[in-house]
Amino acid sequence: MSEVSLERVTKRFDSTVAVNDVSIDIDDGEVMGIVGPSGCGKTTALRLVAGFETPTDGTIRYDGDDVTHVPPENRNVGLVFQSYALFNNMSVLKNVTFGPKMHGVGKEERRERAHELLELLDIEELADRNPKTLSGGQQQRVGLARALAIEPHILLLDEPMTGLDAKLKQTLRQELGQLLDDLGVTTLYVTHDQEQAMSMCDRIAVMNEGHLEQIGTPAEIYEEPANEFVAGFIGTANLLDGTVRDGTLSLGFEDVDTPEAVASNGAVTVLVRPDDIPVGSGPIDVEVTNLFYQGEHIQATGELPDGRELTLRLDRSETAVGIGDTISIDFDPESLHIIESTR
C-alpha cells in the first residue's frame, strides 16, 4: 500500500478540459472519495491514476515516484468497475488468480492467495462457477477479490454499486467499508452518490466541471462547504442571500448576529441545512407549499415572508401539518454557515 498523489494535473480532450489543475494527495491506507455530477471529470481522474489516460499537464506519483508515463499494466492498480468486467471465459478462481499470474506469482501461491480472498469475501463456494451465473452482489465481490489479489498500490473503485438494488447497496456499503478499513488498502472511490461517499470515505474530493471544488472529511464538506456548489451537491441545502454589516447578518426578513468571523461587510450567501431549522416555535412564519413523506421524516417546502422558498424537515409525527398551513420556525445563528464570496 502506498501514498498516491496528483500534482496539478490537467487533462484536455481536444477543446474540452476534463480535469483542470487538480491536486489530490491520498495518504497511505486512506479511502479517498471523488464525487461530483456526471461529466465533472471524476472518472477521468480515476483513469489518470490507473494509467489509461496520460495527463496533458501535471504529475502523478505513487510513493513519491513519478508514474505519469508508466503504462497501466506496470502500475499495479486494482480496478473495480460498475460492470465488474469479469472474464466470462474463466471460472471465478481463475479470474482471481489472473492478476497474480501476470505478475509471475507461482501457481500454488496464487491459488492460496485467491482462496484466502474468496474466503474473506465469503464467496469461497463460488470458486468453480462461471461469473456469468452469479448475481450482481456476488459479481461485485469477485471483482473486488480479483483487484485485491495483486496486492495493489491503490484500489480504484469506479461506481462499483450503481447497478445494485438499494437494500443490497446498503449491506455491501457496510461490508466494503469494514473490509477497506481492515485491509488498510489505499483506495480511490469514484461515485456520483454523495451518501455512499460520505459513509465510506475518510476524505472526499468534490469535483465540478473539471475543477476540484473542495477536499476534506465528510463532516467538513457537509458542515463547512467551500462554496455554493459543494453546499448544494452534498446533502440538502437552503442557500439564502444576505448582507453582513458590522457583525449583523440581515436575511431580509430576520436579522441575526453573524455566526462566524466574516472578513468584510457586504453581500453573502448563507447555508442552512433543513435539519438545523427548529420547527414549531419561533419568530418567522412560513407557509407550507409542499410535503413529501419520506418514511423516516417528512420533507416540507415552505415560503418565507419575502416569498423565498425554504426546505424544512418535519418530524414524522407531525402529520397534522398540511399544505397551506403556516408554521413557525427559528434560525439558530450557530447553524448558519456563511459562504462569503460566490464565484
Partner: peptide, 20 residues
C-alpha cells in the same frame, strides 16, 4: 455484447500487456 473497454482495462490493470 461485452463491455470491451472495461474488460480490456481490467486485464491491463491486472498486469497483462495489450497483446496478452
Amino acid at each position: 455484447s461485452m463491455d470491451l473497454q472495461q474488460i480490456e482495462e481490467s486485464a491491463r490493470s491486472l498486469g497483462a500487456s495489450w497483446p496478452r
